[in-house]
Structure formats: structure tokens, C-alpha cells
């Protein structure tokens, strides 16, 4: 047993497993698509899959930051809706208004994130509640002030959603650019390291001389800004802003599922962006396969639900085994995913 535990760390990292699963899903997709008489790796299909990753990708990258910091953000769909509306209304079909509209939408998103972060960091409200409350506040605002879709995006802005460079959509490239920036933030900056420390254990981070609030606030601000970018991308695709576009996508829970699917520990402090991108890609490929199979839309939800639970079960078992037995943290971690996140609230 002990020897086994010592052997394990030399094996695949959890990110490795995520990409292994992704390869498996890709192979599965290729077989199923070929059985349906189509080419899975045609540039059109690859482009469709990559397009599918971009919106959830933006949100999931932000969600990863927040989850790493030991919090959660359930307000992202509303932020995305609000950003799409603000962007659309400010642009009003004029190309000259694009910079102003982008700044307005992202600025408001950043402000929402700031409030979330301040409430979580300084008022010691659990991120689940703070962002659930913020989501409801925004839902009320959206429901009261916007009866339906509003605004319109000029042609130049719509290009962001439509342009492809080779088989790769521009929106996916922007999303990957953001991912690289966030990876650099996490790996190369002091606050990035502090983010992991605070997420791992707030008390230990504080006792080690880390100011625990700035990383949490930063994570929330970035998460909301990225959700705002997802909203702008939705605006570019649909050319109108819509108050329900975010909630329709279920981006709050799906992004959390993608993050956890990517190997990030829900309690915080452990995980990375690469894994999340893998998780998002798995979802996108799965959706594509189910689309090819012409599976009923409701049954697709059933499959998603099962895959989420089963995939996470694989990691969770593995993570539990991987930890050195001497500290016996595995047992605590296995049984208390929620209390660790709640450490800040208590």
C-alpha cells in the first residue's frame, strides 16, 4: 500500500489525465462521426468544435481563478447577459462606438467583480452566497429594465464572431490569448502564487504573511471581466444583446463543471488553466458528437450530467490515493470538499 502510494506521483498528473480523456473522446468522436458517414477532422467540423469552446472557455478560465482562490462565482451568466446588452446598446450599430462599448461593458463587469470580491474577502461571505446574491441582483435589474433583446452590433464587431484564421476562429484565439495571460499571472507573478496559497489554506497563507484579500478580489474581478468578454462575444455572434443569453447557456454551473472536469479541486488551491481548457474541450467535443448523433437535446443533458459525475469520480479517487498517507489529509479532503471552501466564511 505504502509502496504503491510512493510510486503513484511519478505517474500522470491530473492535467495529463484530462488530455488523455480528451484524446479518448476525440477518437470516439472520430469513430462515431465516421460511422455517420462524415469526416470528424474536416476543417468545418474542427472550426465548429473550436467555436463551441470559446464562450465557455472565457467563463471557465475566470471561474478557474475564482475556484483556485477558494471561492465560487455563480453570477457569470448574468454578467455575460448584462455585458452583451450594455455593449449592444452602446454600439447601436455604429462602428465608431465599438471602443466605448467594449470599455463600458468590461468596466461594468469589472465593477461587479470588484463588489463580489470585496464582499467575499472583507465581509467573509462565502463566494457561493455572494455571487448567488449578485446574480439575483443582476437578474432583477435585467428583468426590470430589458423586456427583450436590445441594441445592435455593427458589422465590424460581428466579424470577431465570424472570422476564421485557417480552421481556427478568431474568438478562440482571443480566448487562448486570455488563457496565456492568466497562466502567466498564475505562474510568474507574486499575486498569482498568493492566489494558490490563499485558496489552499487561508489561515496558513495569512500566518505566512500573505495578505489574503487582494488575490481573492483580483480573482473575482478577472472572472467577471472574462464573463463580460464572453457576453461581448455572444453579442458579436447574435448581433443583438439579450437579457437571457447567459442563463440559457447555464454558464454558471457548466463552467464550474468544466473547471472541476479539468482537475481543479473545488475547494481551491490546486489546479491549473490548462486542465480547464482540456475540460472545456471535452465538453465541446462531446456536444459535437451528440450533435452528429442527433441525440435529443434533453438526453444530451442526461449524458452531460453522467459524464461530469463519472469523470470527476475518476480524478477524485486518484487525488485521494495520491496524497502521502502520513499526513492523512486524504481522508479530510475526501469527506470535506465544502468545509474547506467555507474556511473563509466561518
Amino acid at each position: 500500500m505504502n509502496a504503491l502510494a510512493r510510486l503513484r506521483p511519478t505517474r500522470l498528473t491530473s492535467t495529463g489525465i484530462v488530455y488523455l480523456v480528451l484524446v479518448l473522446v476525440l477518437v470516439l468522436g472520430a469513430v462515431i462521426t465516421a460511422a455517420a458517414g462524415r469526416n470528424f477532422f474536416s476543417s468545418g467540423n474542427i472550426s465548429a468544435i473550436l467555436t463551441g469552446t470559446s464562450i465557455l472557455g472565457f467563463i471557465a478560465i475566470g471561474q478557474t481563478l475564482v475556484i483556485l482562490a477558494g471561492s465560487l462565482d455563480l453570477s457569470v451568466p448574468y454578467v455575460a447577459s448584462l455585458a452583451s446588452l450594455l455593449g449592444g446598446v452602446t454600439m447601436a450599430g455604429q462602428t465608431g462606438n465599438i471602443p466605448l462599448a467594449v470599455v463600458t461593458a468590461l468596466g461594468v463587469a469589472a465593477l461587479i467583480g470588484l463588489v463580489n470580491g470585496l464582499v467575499v474577502a472583507y465581509l467573509h461571505v462565502h463566494g457561493f452566497i455572494a455571487s448567488l446574491g449578485m446574480g439575483l441582483i443582476l437578474a432583477g435589474y435585467l428583468g426590470t429594465n430589458y423586456k427583450g433583446s436590445a441594441g445592435s452590433a455593427p458589422r465590424d464587431f460581428r466579424l470577431i464572431g465570424a472570422l476564421n484564421i485557417g480552421p481556427v476562429p478568431l474568438s478562440t484565439l482571443i480566448m487562448l490569448g486570455c488563457a496565456v495571460l492568466v497562466i502567466l499571472l498564475l505562474r510568474r507573478t507574486r499575486i498569482g502564487h498568493h492566489l494558490y496559497a490563499v485558496g489552499g489554506s487561508k489561515d496558513v497563507a495569512r500566518l505566512s504573511g500573505v495578505r489574503t484579500q487582494p488575490p481573492i478580489v483580483l480573482a473575482h474581478v478577472l472572472c467577471s471581466v472574462l464573463a463580460g468578454m464572453a457576453g461581448l462575444l455572444l453579442l458579436a455572434r447574435l448581433s443583438v444583446g439579450s437579457p437571457t443569453i447567459g442563463t440559457q447557456g447555464g454558464y454558471d454551473l457548466m463552467s464550474i463543471a468544466a473547471v472541476v472536469l479539468g482537475g481543479t479541486v473545488l475547494a481551491g488551491g490546486k489546479g491549473n488553466i490548462l486542465g480547464t481548457l482540456g475540460g472545456v474541450a471535452i465538453f465541446a467535443v462531446m456536444d459535437n458528437i451528440m450533435g452528429v448523433m442527433q441525440l435529443n437535446a434533453f438526453l444530451q443533458d442526461v449524458v452531460r450530467g453522467l459524464v461530469i459525475v463519472l469523470a470527476v469520480a475518476v480524478y477524485a479517487r486518484r487525488n485521494a490515493d495520491l496524497r502521502p498517507a502520513r499526513f492523512d489529509r486524504s481522508r479530510a479532503a475526501r469527506h470535506t470538499p465544502a468545509p474547506t471552501t467555507a474556511g473563509g466564511a466561518a
Binding site: I256, L266, N296, G305, I308, R317, P337
Partner: peptide, 25 residues
Amino acid sequence: TTLLKVPSFIVTLGTMLALSGLVLY
């Protein structure tokens, strides 16, 4: 949640998707 060690947030999110999908289907 307890035996597979999946965080309950994810488990119940999965059952939520699966159940509501099944009912709607």
C-alpha cells in the same frame, strides 16, 4: 459523494442535469 469522493456540488449538479433532462425528454 461519500464513496466515489466526488464533491457533492458536482454530484448533485450531475443528477440535476440528468434528472431534468430525463423528465423533459
